[in-house]
Every structure is written in structure tokens, then in C-alpha cells.
Design a protein around this nucleic acid. Structure first.
Lengths: 200, 200
DNA sequence: ATTATCTATAGATCTATAGATAATGC
DNA sequence: ATTATCTATAGATCTATAGATAATGC
């Protein structure tokens, strides 16, 4: 029943990844350890060889999901800069797309995990600090993407609009209404192009 | 052990109110029926005389909390109009205040319940429809508050910024950072006054 | 007589632990 | 010999139901 050390590491990684996805989809309290381990192809008994507690896994899964998001944004900005396209527009169009809205499990961790995981009053050691670091990283990338128009405050306001629009678009029943929220937020951030692209 | 019909109605109301508060504070899965009934001064056994299921109570508590929020906004706009003040500024200052940020239990239901309660894929009958109605009510009030500058799209974008900023401000550890998010969003919505008030 | 609420409990589920097992890695 | 994973289970908790009780409302 033992497995090579490399395989054990890969198993652990798979659990963290499954947790990041399932926690976003069903909420932390909405997934049990057995389902979590099962999603990584294991049984629940091995859990505590890898993690101190469920909360420990929550912290790790959030960290990974947040880093993935910042990494994605970094690549989008870099690609736009190389192509002499507008990086802000690239970020906003990606973030406010119906695809991103529908893929909660792999989508933005600020929207998909933040509200569920850092509740005022309930202290999960280090979590709020972890989110703060990533909020600043996201805002930093936005500021960079804004170029000459950028400032930390403008970036924080833009990030707020993006996160809020994504969450609201997920709350409503009607697809047209949902789309309208995404488009309205996008238009307000980019000047007005609901169309393909354009320089800033 | 029976109680007057008026008292029974009041008890039911108290349960819905406690649910609205506790669900926002700890998440729907974070509160059990016993705790819920206890917060209304009852024992858990009586629950199913009043509600079909926990999900039934979730729907009712969300509806009540959403209506409370729309009611609050309505009063704020009316008061500002009577006083010839800027209603948009009044809404934004109330919503993006540290007080509102800290009072999750009685604060905006879009931010406090939405992300937890309407998860894509998980269908709780009628809930998403209920949120959609309230999103439109909130946006309608914003549009009205914007006066000549108003449009449905502008209102939806503004609502996105407000909800996103509130949620982000609750995610970070540092008070100064949290305050900065609220202020940056407020400034971007109101022109620039981080100071007392001013016409639009 | 009706019924809102109470106590008690069934049945499911969840986190965490214990001990067995078998393949790795020294 | 070590250890990653497995099966099994303890103990807590949660939703929902059953039956008793006592005050209301006809």
C-alpha cells in the first residue's frame, strides 16, 4: 500500500488541487474529507498523514488557488504587452467572460473562496493575511496594466468592480441579465467597447 | 406549551430574523437548526411546524434580508431627496462605511448571503430568481439616485463596484488596507470626495 | 379539539484516530 | 525499518421525525 515518494507528493498535490476546485464549487463545509480524497483517487484514511486538519488543507488550497489566479493574470498582461494590445482590456475581458463566470471551480479565488472562507469573527490562522497578499498582487497587476492612467486606488476600485460583477452575474437566474451585468461592468471599466478590442 | 397565535407568528418571525443574521455571519452550513431555534428562544423540535425544511427557511431568510436591504436603500434615497442632498453619495457612503463592513449579520444580503447561497449547479428552488429580483431593485434605486447621469448599465456597474469593494474589504487582515479599498471604490464612484459630502 | 412547542431519538454524515498492510528506501 | 495508504470505527453533530404536553380558541 505504500507508494514511491514522488507518487506521494503527486497525490498530495492532487488533493490540494481537488480541494481548491471542490471548495469553490460547493463551499468548504459542502465537501467532506472522504469526497475530497476520493476526488484525488485515494481513501479518507490517509488524509492526516498529509495534512494537520481540514483547516490546514483549506489554507493550502486557498493559497494555491490564489497563486494560480495571480499567475494567470501575469501571463495575460505579459502576452498583451508583447502583442502591443491593451493589457487592461485583456484582463477585464477574460475576467468578465461568461466562461469564467461558469467555471467557478477553477475561476478567481477571491470571488470563489473569499466570501466563504474568511468570515469576520471566524479566525482561520493566516487566511485573511493570505488573501490580503493576493488582493495586493491582483491590484498591482491591474495598476501595471493601466499604464499612465494607473494608481493603486484606481486599481483597487477596478478590482472591486470586477469581483462584484462576477459574483452578481453568478447570483441571477436569467442568462441575459447575467450577461448584462458582466457587459455593463466591462463597459464602465474600458471606456465603452463591448466590442472586440481597442487601445486604451 | 402551546402559545397564542400572535405569539406563534412572532416566534416564527424571530426565527427568520435570527436565520438571516446567523446565516450571514457563519454561512448556511455553519449554523444548525438547534442553534437557530435557540437564538429565537425556542427548542429545535418545533422547527418543522413552521418550516418545510432548512432550505425552506434559507429561502425565506434570504427574501427577508434582501427586502430589508432594498427598504434601507429606499429610505436613504428618499431622505437625501427631501434634504436636497446627493442620493447616490448617500448610498455609496452608507454602503462603503467601515460600520457596514463590520456588521455582516445585518448588512447587505447580496454580499452576505449571495455567494454562499446561490452556487452554480446547486439549485435551491426559487433562490436565484429571488436574488435576481433584488439585484434589479437595487440597480433601479441606484439609477434613480444617479439622476440625469443614470442608466441601467451605469447602475449595474456601480452596484458591482459597491458589492465587490465591500467583499474585498472584509477579506483583508489590515484595517488600513481594508479602509483603502472602501475609500478607493467610493472615490471612483463619486468623482473624488473622500471628504464629507457634495452634490453630484 | 386543536396545535405550538417540548423532549427524545433515529439515521446520516463528518472529522479525526487506531491499527493493519505492503511497498519503498536504506 | 520506515511510511503512505487502507479499512474500521469512535465520537460529535446535523436534519428530520415521533410522541407527549399543555394552553389556546372554538
Amino acid at each position: 500500500m505504500k507508494v514511491t515518494r514522488a507518487q506521494a507528493e503527486e497525490n498530495r498535490r492532487a488533493v490540494v488541487e481537488a480541494a481548491g476546485r471542490l471548495f469553490r464549487e460547493h463551499g468548504v463545509k459542502g465537501v467532506g474529507l472522504a469526497e475530497l480524497m476520493g476526488a484525488a483517487g485515494l481513501t479518507h484514511g490517509g488524509f492526516y498523514k498529509q495534512f494537520k486538519s481540514k483547516d490546514d488543507l483549506v489554507l493550502e488550497a486557498c493559497g494555491q488557488a490564489l497563486d494560480d489566479g495571480v499567475g494567470k493574470w501575469t501571463r495575460i498582461v505579459e502576452k498583451a504587452e508583447v502583442e502591443h494590445a491593451d493589457p487592461l482590456a485583456a484582463l477585464v475581458r477574460h475576467y468578465l467572460s461568461p466562461t469564467h463566470r461558469d467555471r467557478v471551480g477553477t475561476g478567481c479565488a477571491l470571488a470563489g473562496l473569499g466570501p466563504d472562507v474568511v468570515r469576520p469573527g471566524e479566525e482561520r490562522a493566516g487566511l485573511r493575511q493570505r488573501f490580503e497578499t493576493s488582493v495586493q498582487a491582483y491590484a498591482g497587476l491591474l495598476e501595471q496594466a493601466m499604464g499612465a492612467d494607473g494608481s493603486e486606488d484606481a486599481a483597487l476600485a477596478t478590482l472591486s468592480t470586477m469581483v462584484g460583477a462576477l459574483l452578481l452575474s453568478r447570483m441571477v437566474e436569467d442568462e441575459a441579465c447575467s450577461r448584462r451585468i458582466l457587459d455593463a461592468a466591462g463597459a464602465s471599466l474600458l471606456g465603452h467597447p463591448a466590442t472586440p478590442h481597442e487601445g486604451q
